[in-house]
Computed example of a mutant assay.
Amino acid sequence: MSTVLPLAEPVLRRDPRAAAREANKLARRLRHQVGKAIADFGMIEDGDRVMVCLSGGKDSYTMLDILLQLQKKAPVAFSIVAVNLDQKQPGFPEHVLPGYLRSLGVDFHIIEQDTYSVVSRVVPEGKTMCSLCSRLRRGALYTWAAENGITRIALGHHRDDLVATFFLNLFFHAKLSGMPPKLLSDDGRHVVIRPLAYVREDDIAAYAQAKAFPIIPCNLCGSQENLQRRQVGLMMRQWEKDSPGRIETIARALGDIRPSQLSDANLFDFLSLGRHGDAALPDAHAWLAGEPHGVDRGDD
């Protein structure tokens, strides 16, 4: 009696044409979102020299790629220079970025500054290094920008970063503030822009995979995760899982502020609201003292 062998499981192969269509659709969406952010916030003007800060991560690769695409058909003329800070951390593949950027034919510069040794020496073992590392990195980039005629500094923060920073400030610093799409540096010398302000992180991850960017992981601090940011990230992912679209709703809310519906007397004139006289209003001390208005206390 012959033995009947079971049929092999069918191998599901993804249609490469469908994958290409999806990749093109995603690229169009990213170009639209980045172009809209640039227009909405006046990020780039005619004649700007834009420094694209390239870390080697998916976000900055995507930012550079989309800006180069938009540059070809932009309504204004602007130049791009990709800048990376080589922090001299052990094992950093310093050949990857120069090789990739040369293949694109894009103007670029590598800043060499040993911030790794500084951070490793100053921060106790086991502590999060991100804050100090960020300050040193920002200082090096700002210095180079000032010395090389840069008019715009482009950072790769995306929509989810903006929302996460809002919640970090809300939960841990008791203030309603976030990460603006465009800002002036504290010293007033640099305009910083975030062209990915409308772009979802998941879309960036998918785009980076489709483009096969040569990703360089950040292991300066042994892949430490800032505990507070990690907590907020977990919360946001759970929200999005339970209620898809919630993060997008929150992101839109950051651009629709109603000062009269909050409690900041510096943003809205609550004192004048509904007043029916010109006399000075009692201050908090007068209210807390519990002394009726107009009572003569007599001589002390």
Rank of each mutant, 00 (worst) to 15 (best):
D46L: 00
S60D: 07
V163W: 09
E112T: 15
Y142I: 10
F213E: 08
L168F: 09
G139W: 07
A251C: 01
R135M: 13
R138N: 05
L220E: 06
H190F: 11
S103P: 00
A212E: 12
L136C: 11
L227D: 04
D40N: 12
D242W: 05
G188M: 10
A82V: 12
R297V: 14
L54F: 06
A251S: 14
F108H: 15
D48S: 03
K127I: 00
D65S: 12
A197I: 05
I110A: 03
D114R: 03
A82N: 07
A289H: 02
L155D: 06
W144E: 06
S263K: 06
R135G: 02
S79N: 09
L234D: 10
R49D: 00
L254H: 04
S120V: 02
R252S: 13
A19N: 06
Y116K: 08
C221L: 03
K127C: 13
A145Q: 08
E125D: 11
G126D: 08
W239S: 09
V83H: 03
D160T: 09
V50N: 01
G222Q: 05
R21P: 00
E201I: 09
T3R: 08
V4Q: 10
A197E: 01
N169C: 08
L267S: 07
G233Q: 11
K73A: 13
A27N: 09
G126H: 07
E94I: 12
S260Y: 10
V106L: 10
P217H: 06
A174Q: 14
G47C: 00
A37M: 05
F268A: 07
S55W: 08
Q238N: 11
L70G: 04
T165E: 13
F166R: 02
A18M: 11
E94D: 07
N24V: 01
N24D: 11
V232Q: 01
G99H: 04
V50Y: 03
Q33M: 13
L184G: 01
E112H: 10
A284V: 15
A284E: 14
L220S: 11
P16C: 04
M51W: 00
N266D: 14
K175F: 01
K175P: 00
A280H: 07
K72L: 13
V52G: 03
I215N: 01
R230M: 13
E225A: 12
T143L: 09
T62W: 02
I204V: 15
M43I: 12
E45W: 01
F166V: 02
R189P: 00
L104V: 06
D65W: 11
G298P: 02
Y198M: 12
F167K: 08
Y116C: 08
T3A: 10
S263A: 13
Q231L: 13
A286Y: 10
P195D: 06
K73T: 15
N24W: 02
P217F: 05
C133I: 12
N24T: 04
F268S: 02
T165F: 04
